[in-house]
Design a protein around this nucleic acid. Structure first.
Lengths: 196, 196, 196, 196
DNA sequence: TATGAATGAGGATTCATTCAT
DNA sequence: CATGAATGAATCCTCATTCAT
């Protein structure tokens, strides 16, 4: 039914990011998004099943692009260490360049209901998998610890990056996120304990 | 105005955790919470300013208890490493013992609006500070890396723990969270890179 | 936002008069008005800001029409005395022909809150002004006493007419209001004192 | 059941006038009146049947006092003209001395429901009767027009006085009400028409 | 008499979705 | 394909009144 392509499809998604970033999730009515996208309310329903579908599609397309961009970058370097570094760099870089996206994905969209959050979880699969492949590569190359669950390592890496970005957004993006690339890389790589 | 103590105050908070865990945030009407607490709807408003206030109070009291319990435990051991280990252990332990609390704090309450989320952020201050003190102690004892921002270390540690618990809840708490204490401790302590 | 014209706008106002006259101000729920107007509850809010706005708009349109009708009539005669007589006649006539309007404007709408009553006051401005012009005309023609504040004369005339109609409504409109036109005219014109 | 006398009965009535004058009818909760009267909420119900009963009793006692004061004054003079003058003077004087009473009786209490307004009407009976007696006296003495309905004359006099006071209250009592005694007397006595 | 904590019925308003044009 | 007027279900909160103490 819902035609999930086309100029207006994109326009609606763009409008949704903008409206949600500006007004907050709970104050972003379909009418507001339609007005921002310069279409009629009813038109939304030619491209999306319902309001939730806008959010899920939004998150899905954006996270897909996100993972693609990160992958392109880490494919350009060879060692696990360099790939990890580029992952962190790109993760922060993308959000630093698109504040609205940061606000929406880190804060607002998490206010959605259980079902949406589940679907959103799926959208992260690709990115999670990317990190896991990086970890596997590092372990295989003998550069990362083996014997530790790969999923756990991925969770740790993702948890650190996600929390760091969320904190930055909550602090109104007042500081330069990219300055954290080096120290975060160091912590992920070396942990917090000092070796004598 | 709102009397934030007493038997019914506690009963309402307990009911709120239960109802929200079972029905989800957006399907937890005041009437439902009142019925579960065995009080009249209006009674809720003798103890809370409004519905949001229930959530904020809920998160605040629970997180305060949380931080207190963790602190009691880490005070019993001496070295930074042991304290870190106990922190992780207690963080997981508390949620492992109270699934409803885990669901509500990790998933449901995050669906609340911006203002609530802000107040909720404040409730975490005490716990954040606790972790920072632990980090400062470790640095001072020469056991943790110095030269790295303490807040950043705290963010990393909290981010890992939070993401781990969230993941576990999203996976319907099907596995034993406590089995992750050791490997997570290892990762936080040593990072992911293998030293030759 | 609220589109204050159109078929449904009128239908809602008509319904409001009927419902309020029948049920009393405090027992006239939006749902009741909507049902009487044969529209959905939500439709009300496409035409009115809120419930109060229905009342204010109701009073405003009706009083505007009221003043217009009265003006048309007194414009047809020439002397101040005839104009005054026609004013009294029309004031009573309009209410005598529309009992619901009388009930609503004289009794029910006065139960609304302070803000509404203020707005309602403004709606009477046009009618008040009409009476004042009549008085000024009479003074200028040398037919009415000069040296007395025009506003005061208007207040007196309006006060008499208003009280007379209110009394009639309170007595359940059991007698013929139009029979009072002559004696009221006489009293306003001559006062109560008998000149020897 | 309700004991309609005693120190607290009076205290509650006094509190009601004050609270309603300050907060408006619709924002004068029983709790607020109780607090102002320094009694418990429940105590109110030992002296009054229900909230409406407070208002009715309030209006009744105050209007009874009102009529008594006016009567005392007009009894001191002999001619109908002097009595009429004193009536106007006292009517304005009492409200000029008690602004809260003016606000409550002219504006706020009229927002109450149909039943209360009916009871309130009864409280005015005594005052209405007083005016009618004055009119009858004037007619009998040959000073006022005969042949005109006494009730109508009373209605006219009361309507003028009431409208004048209401207007004054609506204008925030910014001018001196007593300055209107003379011109209003003149208008009531002589009407608006100038005799050649 | 007096208290005040507890009750619970009642209603304005929002907003995702539909469907006639 | 596109429109936007119309729909109506769903819910938080207030406050007059009660009654155990």
């Amino acid at each position: 039914m819902a035609k999930k392509t086309g100029e207006k499809f994109e326009a609606i998604l763009d409008a949704a990011v903008k409206v949600i970033a500006q007004n907050g999730y709970h104050n972003s009515q379909v009418t507001k998004i339609a007005r921002e996208a310069r279409v009629a309310d009813g038109t939304i329903y030619l491209y999306f099943e319902n309001k939730d579908d806008i959010l899920v599609s939004l998150f899905h397309t954006r996270m897909d692009e996100f993972a693609t961009k990160v992958k392109q970058k880490i494919d350009l370097v060879d060692t696990p260490e360099e790939k990890l570094y580029q992952l962190i760099y790109m993760h922060f870089k993308i959000f630093a360049l698109d504040h609205n996206l940061a606000i929406v994905t880190q804060i607002e969209i998490r206010q959605s209901n259980r079902r949406i959050r589940n679907d959103i979880g799926k959208s992260l699969k690709k990115y999670h998998r990317l990190i896991e492949e990086l970890v596997e590569f590092g372990v295989q190359k003998g550069k990362f610890h083996d014997g530790i669950d790969v999923r756990l390592m991925r969770q740790m890496i993702f948890g650190i990056l996600d929390e760091t970005v969320s904190s930055w957004v909550m602090k109104d993006m007042k500081y330069d996120l990219l300055e954290l690339v080096d120290p975060i890389y160091f912590l992920i790589a070396n942990g917090i304990e000092r070796k004598s």
